[in-house]
Each structure stands twice: as structure tokens, then as C-alpha cells.
Nucleic acid binder design. Sequence first.
DNA 1: CGACACATTGACCAGACTCAAAGCTAGTGG
DNA 2: CCACTAGCTTTGAGTCTGGTCAATGTGTCG
Lengths: 252, 252
Amino acid sequence: MTGHAVSLSDIEALSLALDLHEPVGDHERDALKKLPVRSARIAAGKDIIRQGDRPTESCLLVEGILCRYKTLAQGQRQILSFHFPGEVPDLQSFHLHQMDHSLCALSDARLAYIPHSAITALLHDAPAMAAILWKATLVDASIFREWLAGVGRRSAPERMAHLFCELFVRMKLLGLVPGKRLHFPVTQTDLADALGLSLVHVNRTLQELRREGLISWIARDFVIEDWPRLKNFANFDPSYLHLRMPLPAEIA
Amino acid sequence: MTGHAVSLSDIEALSLALDLHEPVGDHERDALKKLPVRSARIAAGKDIIRQGDRPTESCLLVEGILCRYKTLAQGQRQILSFHFPGEVPDLQSFHLHQMDHSLCALSDARLAYIPHSAITALLHDAPAMAAILWKATLVDASIFREWLAGVGRRSAPERMAHLFCELFVRMKLLGLVPGKRLHFPVTQTDLADALGLSLVHVNRTLQELRREGLISWIARDFVIEDWPRLKNFANFDPSYLHLRMPLPAEIA
DNA sequence: CGACACATTGACCAGACTCAAAGCTAGTGG
DNA sequence: CCACTAGCTTTGAGTCTGGTCAATGTGTCG
């Protein structure tokens, strides 16, 4: 049981995710439901699109976890973002025709591919969707800015704690976190590439956060052991997520 | 003389900058020219908008250089981007109502403020502008991704060289660089905050690039001394800038 | 001339990296 | 049911990139 997302249709998950930032009207929701989608499954570790590709469709994530990453000249990897059901991580490819990064499945995942031509038609039928989708890409960019500031200026422990705060809030709002336990099946290598750290240092930093009683880590799940202290330790302020509603009391 | 931008009207500079990524049609150009703008001057070092503000207009940069930055909890600053004439650095505030970062003038600058209501009207009169402006914000996001990868995974010298490559290409295409000499009046503190380094280390890294004969630095201007070697040293690949045309031969 | 902002240097320190080895755990095949 | 393997995690030791602190130059401007 991974929250209520499993009981929704693919498109309902999308409209739920969009709705976090901007209300989705009935007409728009109906237009979304008419999107012709092609379902696909992808295995953990597989790339969905690669840097340099010129896709003609974007993918809605229905189930599982994805990440975007860049590979630099000498093979270093930087993870740019993590993605959850209801998100369309490569929506930007609708306008930026060549991928400047890759998209990869961290777990086995279910996708719904949406042809770019269908997005064009959607924007024609429901012009208000343009603002909603544009805004979704702007929130995406805001998260990049926060990560940039973190990698540039936060210490390793604070940066890692901040990431857990972000994941907790985002996953919670998508209904993916029953209590305080995030199912987030990444390796420490993945964390290292997301945080701009080395594998060894991630291991030690993670131990530090556990020793401090801020989080724990059981079988691929992270548990938020002390949310107020974690938030405080990370100096986490969710305003960069540009949420439409205040945080639910449980995680305020 | 800072290139031909000075001889263009404010809006022509905007349409030139947008045109780098997506062709701007005649009708759209005309609609842009009807935008009601309010001119303003701002002194070097002054903030234009601050983190937390809720602006009702966006600003087109007409002359000078701006940067966006975040201030973290303990006062550390991370510069997120640099901006040149023709760009609208806070276009995202049209949809993201609260600023998650600040915008600041690095030099004395001239601005043209565009009310958000005028952007709404523009999109109504010239619907094709929506795609063009959306795309501009997507390119912005792509640059954040590249910076994120750089701060996360590139060494200090490579990261700094990469920044100079980006600035050279972007400024060149906007007509701001007569030969190989960029007028880019930042302090080493600014560079440090952009690169996620300390001031002292920036000073030494800059000396290294100068010693290597890659760049030089004369009275607030950076000179690209050896473009092929600089590009190579930085592993610079301009595709993340999502330019519509290939680079001009001079800087290919 | 004095003040101020910025650049440069030196000395020392530490957070984070690398290399290398050793545990764990889950899955596989005999 | 038990090796065996493969992929991760953990630990140790040594190194280095890049940070901090503090002082000294340099240039500009009133």
C-alpha cells in the first residue's frame, strides 16, 4: 500500500500533482482525461530517455520513482531531481527538443507516454492548461535553484537533511507516505550523485543523521524520526516548492 | 560602446534575445512593441526584488548586468544566474507569485518594468508568445541544471572556466562582446558566490587560469585569450543553452 | 591624505575524497 | 540447503582540494 495513488487512474494522479500548485478546473480535468496515453513498464536502473535524444512524447510517471541526471565529460554523474507518481519529468521536452540530461528509473516503474502532439491538442482544447503546465515547469526550476544553493553553500549533513525534508513533504502531499516512513529505494551511490558528494562521505553523513536521531533507514525506507529537529537542522523552508495550500498540520 | 544593443529600443533587445531560442514572428514582435513599459534605472549593488516579495510586474533588462541569488539561513549567498540586456530574469514571477530568490544589479542598469497584467494581455493578443516565453523559462531552467552539475561535480578550475565559456557565448550572441573581451564587472566575491567557492580560492583559481594563458583580466573585463583551449579545458558543450542556430564560426 | 573596497598572499586547518579492504544480504544454481 | 556471486554498505588510513583567518597590497575617490 503506497497511499491512495494506487487507486487512481493515471491521469487522476497527474491532475492531483498539478493541483498542488494551481487549481485544475473541471473542464481542464476532463480535457486531461481525454489524453491518449500509451502505458509502459520500465525496470529499475533503465534509462527512459538519454541526453541528446529528441523525444516526440513526454512521460507521465504512474508508479515508481525516477530521477533525472547529467553525465559530464569524464563520466561523473549528477542527479538533478527525483520524481514521483503524477509528475511529468520530461515535460520540458515539449519545447526543448533536445534532451540536455537523461531520465532514469530508480525502481521498477509504470509510465504513461503522452505524444507531444496530444499536448498541443490539449492546449488548444483547454487553453487554461498552458498556464498550469508552464507553472509546473517553473516549480521544477525553483527546485533546481534550491538544489544549486544547497550544493554550493550547504554542508554535507545539512544538505542531506534538506533533501530528506524535501522528499518527505513532496511525497507526503502526493499521498505516498502513510506515516513517517518514505519508501525511497535509492543506493548510497545515488544519494552521493544527487548531493554532489562521494559515496564514502554519504555513508558517514548518513550515519551522523542516524546517530543524531533525525532519521533512520530500514530496508530501503527512510523514517523521519524527529521532523521538527530535522527541519530545523536543515533550515528547511518549503516556500521554494510554491505550494498552493499551507502544509498539513501533521508536517507543518 | 557595448555592442549594438544600445542602438535598439528596449523591446527590440527582448525580441532579439527570445529569437535566439525560438523564432519570433512579425505579429508577435508587433504585439511586444505595444507592451506598456515603465523605465527605471538602478544603481550597482541594489536589489531589484527580494526573496519573499510578491511582484506585480516583471523587469526587462535594457542595459547593465543583473544576477539572481538566494540567501540561506546563516547568511551564505549563492548566485543562481547572470543576466544580460534583452532578458527578463524574473519572468517566472508571472506564475510563481512569491519570489524564492532575489534579483540584484551588478552594474548600474536600466530596466523596463512590464506589468503582469500586460503579459496576460500580450498572451491574449498573440497566443504564440506563450510558447516563446515558456520556452525562455525552460532554457533558464536548463542553465540551472548545468550549474547544478558543475557545482556538484566539476573541479574549481573547470567550473570557473565553464562559467567563462557560458558568459562568452551568451554575451556574444546578444552582441555584447566586440572581440574576445567581456565587460563583466563582478568582484571575486561575486564569482565565489556563483561558483560555490570561497573568495580566497577564487582568487587562486583565477590566477591559475591566467597563468595557463586561458583568460586574462583587465580592469573589470575578462579577455578570452585562447578560446579553443578554454573550451576544451572546461569541457564546454553549448547544447544546454538550446540555441536555435549553430554557433557563429568565430566561436564555434 | 585618509578611507574604503577589493585583490593578493601566507599559514594553517578541515571537510570531503580516494583507495582499499572487509561485512552484509539477497538471489542463484548445484 | 548450502556454497557462490553480485551489489551494497561499512570501515580504515592517508591525502588533497578547498576553506578559514589574518595580514598586506593596490587603486579610487572625496
